[in-house]
């Protein structure tokens, strides 16, 4: 289908973008890479009055080193992120998970910030951002910049903490130090499909034991979920198949997974347990 009509603005700077968004009002949408939004427009599941296209805001594509953290510009494409030497060195979990997003053509257009602001619980990157304790930087014309912790950013199904007049500028991701292994375990029906369940996992090993673990789940509720019970259980235990399996048993605790034609909520809970054990195992040996 052809999208409904909309006004279109193509700002060149963040300031212009904020001004355009403020002026366009509540029924405007920010267009990042468009790989989620364009299908919604075409299916007329979304029909904003105006699109503010960030495609030409070059400053938002930057990925930079900020001492203890990486700053990933919201408009950095998946293609760019998964190849970026800084990301690969200091946030390899992001590189690994991004490589599983959709397909090469979509990754050429789709952006890191767009995928996060879209807040689709079946998207891969929200759980990754949550597991890595990322901080989101938003800006509006009226109120300037503010920071939002990952734990506060994902509010509900397809709903982020961004206000209608706010633009996501980028995400600050604390660097993982030495000793961390990471893995993103994704279960999907076909190569390019969304995760039925996914597990983002980072494990720090010290002398044969797990010193700390970060685990977050994709598509196990209306938002990505941190598997706190798994993290608490596994910390301090020896690296072994049985301890990872026991930890995985706790993965579905406190979650409310959806049921749909790809799987019932019980099936997703089962997947979360199995995949979490696999993700821990893989991360501990990475």
């Amino acid at each position: 289908m052809i999208p409904a009509t909309f006004d279109y603005a193509r700002p060149g700077t963040v300031e212009e973008a904020c001004a355009a968004l403020a002026e366009a009002g509540e029924d405007a949408k920010v267009l990042a890479g468009g790989q989620s939004l364009m299908p919604l427009l075409r299916l007329r599941l979304a029909y904003p009055d105006a699109l503010i296209d960030l495609d030409r805001v070059a400053a938002l594509r930057e990925i930079r080193d900020e001492d203890g953290a990486l700053f990933i510009g919201a408009m950095a494409t998946h293609h760019q992120v998964m190849r970026d030497p800084l990301v690969r060195a200091h946030a390899p979990l992001i590189a690994k998970a991004t490589a599983t997003v959709a397909d090469p053509a979509v990754r050429h257009r789709g952006t890191f910030g767009g995928a996060l602001a879209h807040a689709d619980p079946a998207g891969d990157l929200p759980a990754v951002a949550l597991a890595l304790d990322a901080t989101f930087l938003a800006v509006s014309a009226e109120r300037g910049e503010r920071e939002i912790a990952a734990a506060d950013f994902f509010v509900d199904w397809m709903t982020s903490a961004l206000e209608p007049d706010e633009i996501l500028v980028g995400v600050r991701v604390p660097k993982l130090g030495a000793g961390w292994g990471v893995h993103y375990e994704k279960f999907h029906r076909t190569a390019q499909a969304w995760a039925i369940v996914g597990v983002a996992c980072a494990v720090r090993r010290e002398r044969g034991a797990v010193e700390a673990a970060r685990v977050a789940l994709t598509n196990m509720g209306p938002t990505p979920v941190r598997a706190a019970e798994v993290e608490d259980f596994i910390a301090g235990r020896t690296v072994s198949e049985s301890s990872f399996r026991e930890a995985g048993e706790r993965a579905a605790a406190g979650t409310s997974p959806p049921g749909d034609l790809h799987g019932s909520s019980e099936y997703r809970a089962h997947l979360a347990r199995v995949l979490t054990a696999r993700a821990l195992t893989a991360a501990a040996s990475a």
Binding site: M1, Y8, R10, G34, Q35, M38, P39, R42, L43, D53, D55, H79, A102, D103, P104, A105, V106, H108, R109, Q192
Partner: peptide, 27 residues
């Protein structure tokens, strides 16, 4: 398709593959 799934409309934009059903002409 209407959903960015099938890839039949793939073209190169500045040398990189894109699905031309998911890009606006103005872009």
């Amino acid at each position: 398709c209407d959903t960015t799934n099938c890839g039949a409309c793939t073209v190169l934009m500045d040398g990189l593959s894109v699905k031309s059903c998911s890009v606006l002409a103005v872009q």
